[in-house]
């Protein structure tokens, strides 16, 4: 597909909410295998996720917490779990336009149904191998940053949208 280059050279910002450091490294390294750079940010639980998104707590610096284009959300986390965090994000008019994709070890049907019911934009069972994660990240990239049009205007950056960018080749 002859795809539109992101003419503003704007990097996509992905926020990963994951309490397990091994899983976090697995996701991050899968993203880093691609040529293009992302702004990858991470938080450790739902409480920190909401603080990040609302620029509270440790995220008062505007540059410390850029608004993500996509949130990857683990479900089972301490303090505030992913279910509650998702419900809060989708109930908040300032946040609910950000797509949230659940990436979890859970394959419980109730979790899957509830994720969509609350407004999640996908439920992915976490692959346990690097190869599996690489494949998932490849498809995630292609879909969210090449096929889909994200709601970029909300960041108010020049009032322009971040159209689909050419993120990886292949």
């Amino acid at each position: 597909m002859s795809e539109v280059m992101n003419d503003q050279n704007q990097l996509f910002t992905i926020l990963i909410a994951e309490d397990d450091s091994d899983d976090k490294v697995l996701v991050q390294s899968a993203f880093q295998e691609f040529d293009s750079a992302y702004n990858l940010f991470s938080v450790q639980d739902g409480f920190e996720l909401l603080n990040y998104l609302r620029k509270q707590g440790g995220f008062l610096e505007p540059t410390a917490a850029p608004r993500p284009d996509l949130i990857l959300l683990d479900l089972n986390m301490p303090r505030m779990d992913g279910r509650q965090a998702l419900a809060e994000i989708k109930a908040d008019p300032a946040l609910r336009s950000i797509p949230v994709v659940v990436l979890s070890n859970s394959s419980v049907q109730e979790d899957i149904l509830r994720t969509y019911d609350l407004g999640g934009a996908g439920f992915i069972i976490k692959p346990q191998t690097c190869e599996g994660m690489h494949e998932v990240v490849k498809i995630l990239n292609r879909y969210w940053f090449k096929v889909v049009q994200l709601a970029g205007g909300v960041r108010g950056k020049n009032g322009k949208s971040n159209g689909p960018a050419h993120i990886y080749s292949g």
Binding site: Q109, F123, I125, E135, I139, L140, K146, V147
Partner: peptide, 15 residues
Amino acid sequence: RGFKQYWVQIVCLPT
């Protein structure tokens, strides 16, 4: 194709 890879291959939908 990208749409189907995402929604059919990697995503779980409710049964």
